[in-house]
Amino acid sequence: MGALLGAPQAQGGSLDWDVVSSVNGLARHLPSALDSLLAFMGEYGVPLASVLMLLATWLWARKQSDPAGSVAGVLWAGLAAGLALVANVPVRALVERPRPFVEHPGSLDLLMDHQANGSFASDHATFTMAVAVGVFLVNRRYGFVAMGLAVLEGFLRMFVGVHYPTDILGGFALGTAVTLLLAPIAMALLTPLAHSVSRSALAPLIAHPRPRPATGRRSARRGGPAPLPDEPPHDLAA
């Protein structure tokens, strides 16, 4: 099956190879320090930014009118990303696709040390897109930002020379499928759990603490007349 996805040994023999070689070729025109920075971002920076988007969505969800339902959605986004990575393990074992720097030794500027394991599908693309789709189900604005991070991650994985574009697309598809297909079951389980937690000592994890209403008489406006004292009850018999 790997032969169906992999680029042929002759260079320039597939669109997959043409795209990754062109994107990776950009590194030759950039300063080495910038190449190193982009490689770091592709390996660690963008996935971390996706996690931070998950955190930002959780902080937003705690302030909503139905915080338990929203927080359950954020929790599912994180769990879906983990499940998608697990699902990718048998996919990689089945496909067994060599990475581009393995199929075309010496033809790419490999910008980072990487083991020569299976290339399809990309774990990084799978993770970032699963997070993005899960966040989108909770908050569309944050979801679009997270999707932008996933697309950037896919580009950077090709830039450093460790994935073909179809590896990236396969990861996007896997992350999206796991998140959407299992969402109804996951939300049916996680939403009651979030409601239960909201009634426990861990309630601040679900809902942002709201200020208690003020008690007693309202103070007079600054500069206004002082409040009148309470009048004694009239003597109706007088």
Rank of each mutant, 00 (worst) to 15 (best):
I185S: 05
F159E: 04
A183L: 13
L169T: 10
T179F: 07
A177C: 10
L190I: 12
L182H: 05
A177Y: 10
F159A: 01
I168Q: 00
L180G: 11
A173R: 10
L190K: 11
A186T: 04
G171E: 01
V178M: 05
A173Y: 10
T176Q: 09
P165S: 14
A186W: 02
L169R: 05
G175H: 02
I185F: 15
A177G: 13
T166L: 15
I168S: 00
L182Q: 07
V178W: 02
T176F: 01
F172G: 00
L189I: 15
L169S: 08
T166Y: 13
A188H: 11
L169M: 15
V160Y: 02
Y164P: 10
M158T: 08
A183E: 05
L181R: 14
V178P: 00
D167P: 14
L189P: 07
L190Q: 09
G161F: 02
L181S: 09
T179P: 04
G171K: 00
A173W: 05
I168N: 00
M158I: 15
L180Y: 00
A188L: 09
P165H: 01
T176G: 11
V160Q: 04
G170V: 02
V162Y: 02
V162A: 04
H163E: 07
V178A: 07
L181T: 12
A177K: 11
M158C: 14
L169W: 06
L189D: 12
T179C: 08
I168W: 01
P184G: 12
L180I: 14
V162S: 03
L182C: 13
L169Y: 08
A188E: 10
M187G: 14
M187T: 14
A186F: 09
F172M: 07
V160A: 08
G170K: 03
H163W: 15
I185N: 14
Y164T: 13
G161W: 01
L189T: 07
L169I: 12
P165G: 11
I168Y: 03
V160F: 07
Y164G: 08
F159I: 11
L181D: 13
L174Y: 03
G175C: 12
L169G: 03
T176A: 12
T179D: 04
H163M: 14
G175S: 06
L189Q: 12
I168P: 00
L174N: 04
L190S: 06
D167G: 04
F159N: 01
G161N: 08
A188F: 07
M187N: 15
L174I: 09
M187Q: 11
